[in-house]
């Protein structure tokens, strides 16, 4: 079950990377390591993404592979644990991910495929698509509704990996599981050529988790 949630959380972190260039890293061999902080703002885990292959198909379309794994500390040698590979396709419209290294596969579908994409031109106030998103994995499916999805700010943000110019996207998600509804708000800082630099998820006024880029090598 832990592996399931880990994979799901990495998947959601990976989704924005399916964005059209340049708000993602499309450099073969690039390494992005993230720290995940818990509610007490203590490091809970580290994860690593390695851009293994990128094929530029032209017109803002790419095929690529992202190796994902958990690591015990930044810079750790080896493949890490719970490794899996996300095979990404970015086309006008549909985005689909197939995961290897875990049992079964992950499928993502959305009422508006644009939800999983980020345009290459942003401005504060830009409204990204809203709608339902279904994630199916290992025979289990969940449906969430993105009720708000907007660029709310832009700023130069400093994280352990350095200083980055970012646009800040606020996304509000509603999900019902086991009869209990939860509304989460996630703010994500995106930088050109990098992708996600930082993200914060809150429920009400409570910070649930925070991710920061701790290593960026390309």
């Amino acid at each position: 079950m832990k592996k399931y949630f880990l994979t799901l959380s990495v998947l959601f972190a990976t989704l924005p990377l399916l964005a059209q260039a340049p708000y993602t890293c499309v450099t073969k061999g690039a390494v992005l390591e993230y720290a995940t902080y818990n509610e007490e703002d203590k490091v809970e885990s580290y994860s690593r993404q390695v851009i293994q292959d990128v094929t530029d198909l032209g017109g803002g379309n790419y095929d690529f592979r992202i190796s994902n794994s958990t690591i015990s500390e930044p810079g750790e040698k080896g493949e890490g644990d719970n490794a899996f590979v996300a095979l990404g396709e970015v086309r006008e419209g549909a985005a689909k991910i197939a995961i290897s290294g875990v049992d079964g596969s992950i499928d993502v579908s959305a009422s508006d495929p644009g939800i999983t994409m980020l345009p290459n031109k942003l401005a504060v106030g830009y409204q990204l698509p809203i709608g339902d998103v279904r994630v199916s994995m290992e025979g289990f499916a969940v449906v969430a509704t993105i009720t708000d999805n907007e660029v709310i700010d832009r700023e130069e943000v400093t994280v352990p990996a350095g200083k980055f110019k970012c646009y800040v996207v606020k996304q509000v998600t509603e999900m019902t599981m086991m009869g209990v509804s939860a509304v989460t708000t996630t703010k994500t800082w995106y930088s050109r050529g990098v992708g996600v630099v930082k993200s914060e998820t809150t429920m009400g006024n409570r910070l649930v988790s925070r991710n920061e880029l701790v290593t960026f090598k390309k």
Binding site: A123, Y126, Q127, S136, V142, M178
Partner: peptide, 27 residues
């Protein structure tokens, strides 16, 4: 619940998203 989620028809948000696209043209 999973079976339910698998069967849920994703709702159509095209009207709202069209309005959002129009808004973006003013930026």
């Amino acid at each position: 619940m999973s079976a339910g989620a698998a069967n849920v028809t994703l709702r159509d948000f095209s009207e709202q998203n069209a309005a959002r696209k129009e808004h973006n043209k003013t930026l």
